[in-house]
Design a protein around this nucleic acid. Structure first.
Lengths: 194, 194
DNA sequence: CGCCATTTTGAACGGTTATTCATTCACCAG
DNA sequence: CTGGTGAATGAATAACCGTTCAAAATGGCG
């Protein structure tokens, strides 16, 4: 009897759903198993423990879904503005596919990184580095405001996107994903002033 | 023997410290008691349970510290730009006073609001309403971009501030609080483009 | 068809920790 | 000084839930 990749994916998906509903701490292994359609014991065939499940969820995001930012940042055929727009699209594309994933990411990511070794650390920092590099390139070529440190610009943009996306999935914004994306891009480019 | 307001404050402060270090779930009541200089049992003289401690921390923020936004938003002697700047200052002033409070707020607030009645719900929504009102006033008077829904602008700004402040206290930004505030204000007004 | 390796199962286990409460202690009014 | 009220203590409790593991099920292979 061989391990089943389908079962692993079912657990992965069930975990995202259950964690998004209850939060990581209150998400019970038994519930994840139930939603995935396996027994509680089977979780441990595919994951070593509860932390491992969440680690994999984030690893998939950073290592697979968002790793595309590094090559994007290095392209010679795009302007910094185009790269920045591409970066925003990348963030949106990955997250807008799964409402539950947004909730898990927003609520659990910071806490999960706290006082712990995580498997995706390298990819996470590469992503941040690539984002910063785009901003710095834009500053060097005179299209982005050079007075704001690139790090600060990055954090502000990513934090703004994160919270807006969360508001959108929680239903407090009354806009759809596509409209939100357009608004956010406008806000990032030009700010609030007309 | 009367209850001691000093002891309650000591517990409040200790809880912020311990929760910021370990996260709410891993913050032990025994540790909070130890840091506060009281016994574990005494926590229950001042708070009904663990949730109650965190509820009070957030209640203080929204009911006391940030309630000032409502009168600010209603002032007739300030322009929308001045009000927006005042709002940003208010957020910064409250949070920059306590590094641990920033960490608790960023990491625990969303999760704590999930599937639960909280005591500060009213003040929280009044704050958001006042922030939106400032944006809407600016849109009505033609100084703020009217194409972006005020809600979206609010969430984006607050999310951006939150993540930047967190980056600053975590030491990933290499700017001090005052410089960060200036940069954030510039970013909000004009965006990344020069 | 049977054998064996591997997975699946779920009841039982055990570690953790929020909470309780009998007892002790501190304060103050009379 | 003293008695009574109510806070402080911290060891004991009890519930919760992640994890284990012995037994059963599965499925591929010779």
């Amino acid at each position: 009897m061989a391990v089943s990749i389908d079962k692993e994916r079912a657990i992965h998906k069930a975990a995202i759903q259950v964690i998004s509903e209850y939060g990581f701490h209150k998400a019970k292994m038994a519930k994840i198993a139930e939603v995935a359609g396996v027994s509680a014991g089977s979780l441990y065939t595919y994951y070593s423990d509860k932390d491992h499940i969440l680690d994999r969820i984030f690893e998939m995001l950073w290592k697979k879904d968002w790793a595309g930012l590094v090559p994007l940042s290095e392209r010679k055929d795009l302007s910094p503005q185009e790269k920045l727009e591409g970066a925003i699209d990348l963030v949106f594309d990955v997250l807008t596919g799964d409402r539950n994933l947004i909730i898990v990411f927003v609520n659990e990511f910071n806490n999960f990184m706290k006082n712990k070794e995580v498997s995706f650390s390298l990819y996470y920092h590469e992503f941040l580095g690539a984002f910063s590099a785009i901003i710095e390139e834009g500053q060097a070529t005179g299209v982005f405001n050079p007075h704001i440190p690139a790090n600060v610009t990055c954090d502000f943009i990513l934090g703004g996107i994160r919270k807006s996306l969360y508001g959108q999935v929680m239903g407090t914004l009354a806009v759809d994903g596509a409209a939100l994306r357009t608004h956010i891009k406008a806000m990032i480019r030009r700010g609030v002033l007309v």
